[in-house]
């Protein structure tokens, strides 16, 4: 599904990613851990095509397509979704208008008819129940005045609306209380198909109890320095990163 080769990337002239190699196959869940500032969010932003991040070397293919030559919206239509570490607030744009535009843009890209208004509203309602997000949140402006946890829930709601095939969860667990964490993880698991794959960025073992990874990678200073099975997450939780650095 996703193949990253020797990826180097800069932001504001500073090299952050220094040769990332990572392959994620259909249906696989990969966890990505690492110290603050190691470059985890940078990697997510590069995958979704944020214009501030400049790729200086390497390649990314997604289902065989050259991802780096695609616009952010094309990457989205191809099935890539990023649950942002810090979702932005967009005053004056209602969740409904936002989601209608997003759902129909994707449908257009897939050469499907736009949803009728009633169909769309039903999809909103059903999805809102599925991920157990408050109806009131969905009727407000995008993330405006949402609490940290509500923003994360809203990311999962959008994910459910758009049904991506490859999801990046960038610290979606941070700021969630225990119940919310379970709801969010359940939401994700319900959406999963056998083909859905994910890159789950987290600092904590607890999310990985709900979303079981096939692999755990450690990113330090712009490079993946260790890859192992799920037990690695437990080791990091107990012992930190110092033992890997050496």
């Amino acid at each position: 599904m996703l193949r990253i080769k020797n990826l180097h990337a800069r932001v504001e002239g500073k090299e952050i990613l220094k040769g990332i190699n990572l392959t994620i196959r259909d249906g696989e869940i990969h966890a990505l851990m690492g110290t603050n500032g190691a470059g985890k969010s940078t990697l997510s932003n590069v995958i979704v095509g944020h214009p501030k991040y400049e790729v200086t070397d390497g390649s990314i293919t997604f289902n065989g397509q050259d991802l780096l030559s695609m616009t952010p919206e094309e990457r989205s239509h191809a099935g890539i979704f990023l649950s942002f570490q810090s979702p932005v607030e967009i005053a004056g744009v209602s969740m409904t208008n936002f989601m209608r535009a997003a759902v129909n843009a994707r449908r257009e890209a897939l050469k499907q008819e736009p949803l009728k208004s009633t169909e769309f509203l039903k999809l909103m309602r059903d999805t809102q129940k599925l991920v157990d997000i408050d109806k009131k949140l969905v009727s407000r402006s995008v993330n405006e005045g949402f609490s940290g946890g509500e923003k994360k829930r809203n990311e999962i709601f959008q994910m459910a609306m758009l049904q991506p095939t490859f999801c990046i969860l960038d610290e979606t667990d941070s700021g969630l209380d225990v119940d919310a964490l379970r709801v969010v993880a359940d939401g994700f698991n319900k959406l999963r198909t056998p083909q859905t794959s994910a890159l789950v960025i987290t600092h904590y073992q607890r999310l990985l109890d709900y979303i079981r990874p096939d692999f755990v990678h450690v990113l330090l200073d712009g490079k993946i320095v260790k890859t192992a099975g799920p037990e690695l997450a437990k080791e990091i939780e107990d012992n930190g990163f110092d033992w890997i650095k050496e």
Binding site: E73, S76, F98, A101, A102, A105, V142, L162
Partner: peptide, 10 residues
């Protein structure tokens, strides 16, 4: 960028 990531054209 947030809107574009969700598939809304620029």
């Amino acid at each position: 960028f947030y809107l574009r990531q969700r598939g809304i054209p620029l």
